[in-house]
Simulated assay, not measured.
Amino acid sequence: MFTGIIETLGSVASIEKESNNLNITIESTFTNELKIDQSVAHNGICLTVVGIFDSQYLVTAVQETADKTTISDWKVGDIVNLERGMKLGDRLDGHIVQGHVDQTAICSKIEDAGGSTYFTFSYDSSIGNLTIEKGSITVNGVSLTVVNSKKDEFSVAIIPYTIEHTNFKKIEIGTKVNLEFDVIGKYVSRLQEYRK
């Protein structure tokens, strides 16, 4: 379980394919605090730590993860948003995030809003995911509030601090990102399907 509040940025140190899996080594400032079997969200993708080497750690992504997220597009040197699992009893500063990416989206517009920046993302709504105005959304692991919710796109307003401390600073028009839709909204949507 995560909150969508990014702790630090990491960088991809190496990627090795092993059968259908990807073994990815991450360089991180909090590696010395990690332990084997710990869950860490990488751009919103929950992955298990399977090896630790000085300032780097190793995670493995299976084919299902590669198919549903941006992880198969990662390259050595890419910057990723990192968050460790929340501690029981901590404040929930973002929203309830599972680290289970629902689908990807493409950045379709970036607008300066005089103190903040609006990023608009387009996604395939036929999969059944949806946003609501002022609802929660996770973009590359970052907990955000939806503005301008539409059937197949939404926008988020990003403050300068978030741009500086996440990989939003690397997002441009055409960039593919990971989305995790609000877990409560997903359950409500599924219940509505059963009522039909």
Rank of each mutant, 00 (worst) to 15 (best):
T69C: 09
T69E: 13
D78R: 06
Q103W: 06
T65Y: 04
A113I: 07
F121Q: 02
E83H: 02
Q63S: 01
T104A: 04
I110P: 03
V62A: 11
E64V: 13
I96P: 02
L88N: 14
G115T: 04
W74P: 02
S126V: 09
E111P: 06
T117K: 08
N81Y: 13
G115C: 05
I71F: 09
S136F: 12
Y123I: 05
A66F: 07
I79C: 13
A66L: 14
T120D: 09
G85F: 03
V76H: 01
F121N: 01
L82D: 00
S108A: 14
G77Q: 01
L82E: 04
G115H: 02
G89E: 11
E83G: 00
S122M: 11
G89A: 12
D73W: 05
I96G: 04
T131Q: 08
V101N: 03
A105D: 05
S136I: 05
A113D: 09
K134D: 09
T69N: 10
I132A: 12
V62R: 09
N129I: 08
A66M: 15
T104P: 11
T117R: 10
G94A: 00
D124F: 12
D102Y: 03
V97N: 00
E83C: 01
G85D: 07
M86H: 11
E133T: 08
L92I: 15
T104F: 02
E64P: 04
A61N: 10
K134N: 08
N129T: 06
G94T: 02
G135V: 02
Q103F: 07
L92F: 12
N129Q: 07
T131K: 09
V62Q: 11
V76E: 11
N129V: 10
Q103N: 14
I96E: 06
G77C: 02
V76C: 01
Q98R: 10
W74D: 06
G128T: 07
D78I: 08
D90H: 04
G115A: 05
E83Q: 04
H95F: 12
L88I: 15
D93M: 15
W74F: 14
D78V: 08
N81H: 13
S116I: 04
T117V: 14
H95S: 09
C107N: 12
D73R: 07
A61E: 03
T70R: 05
G135Y: 02
D67P: 02
I106L: 10
S72G: 11
K68E: 01
K75L: 06
Y123W: 09
G115L: 04
D102W: 06
Q98N: 13
E133W: 03
D93H: 10
V76K: 03
G128R: 08
A105K: 06
G89Q: 08
M86K: 14
T70Q: 08
I127E: 08
Y118R: 13
T131Y: 05
I79A: 12
R91I: 10
M86E: 14
I106A: 10
K134F: 06
T117D: 06
S116F: 10
S108E: 12
M86R: 15
G85T: 15
S126Q: 10
L130Q: 11
T117I: 14
Y118H: 11
D73T: 14
T131L: 06
A66E: 15
